[in-house]
């Protein structure tokens, strides 16, 4: 039987703010690029995101953050992933993130941050070069 690894990406919207247009635009672009996107909707707690990432065996976690709470939400999701034993899962995000915060998040282990105005093609390109379907060693 012919095997076919597909990249699966979890797209989540943590935090309290109530609109998910930004998340949906990126999710759509990922689908158009041929990825399977598990979309979990609004108001996700970090542990809900981590639990879904484990159950869905995704290759990548993407967070849409518009609320300005990125400096707490990213580390919280990273910790939740670690508690559920998948700290090595790549994680990226998009939203309004000032340059110095971005540098700090990348320093803290977030793999990529995209700010508004970035064409979605750039996100796809980043995934193509940096994310491989996971194979357990």
């Amino acid at each position: 039987m012919s095997s076919q690894r597909k990249i699966r990406i979890l797209v989540a919207k943590p935090g309290l703010d109530g609109h998910d247009r930004g998340a949906k635009v990126v999710a759509r672009a990922l689908v158009d690029a041929g990825y399977e996107v598990i979309y979990t909707g609004l108001h996700q707690t970090p542990d809900m995101i981590a639990a879904a990432a484990v159950q869905e065996a995704v290759d990548l976690v993407g967070l849409s953050i518009m609320s300005g709470a990125h400096m707490t939400l990213f580390p919280a999701v990273q910790e939740a992933l670690e508690r559920r034993g998948v700290s090595d899962l790549p994680i990226f995000g998009w939203g309004i993130v000032p340059e110095e915060d971005k540098a700090a998040l990348l320093e803290g282990g977030v793999d990529a941050i995209f700010t508004p105005g970035t064409p979605t093609t750039e996100i796809i390109e980043w995934i193509e070069t940096n994310v491989r379907p996971r194979v357990e060693g």
């Binding site: 597909k6 999710a27 759509r28 990922l30 689908v31 158009d32 690029a33 041929g34 990825y35 399977e36 996107v37 598990i38 979309y39 979990t40 909707g41 996700q44 707690t45 542990d47 809900m48 639990a51 879904a52």
Partner: peptide, 17 residues
């Protein structure tokens, strides 16, 4: 594209954890 948006979990979130 061969991609897919899988959104059924949205309605089941209260059971996520």
């Amino acid at each position: 594209s061969g991609g897919a948006i899988l959104g059924d979990r949205i309605r089941m979130q209260r059971h996520a954890t």
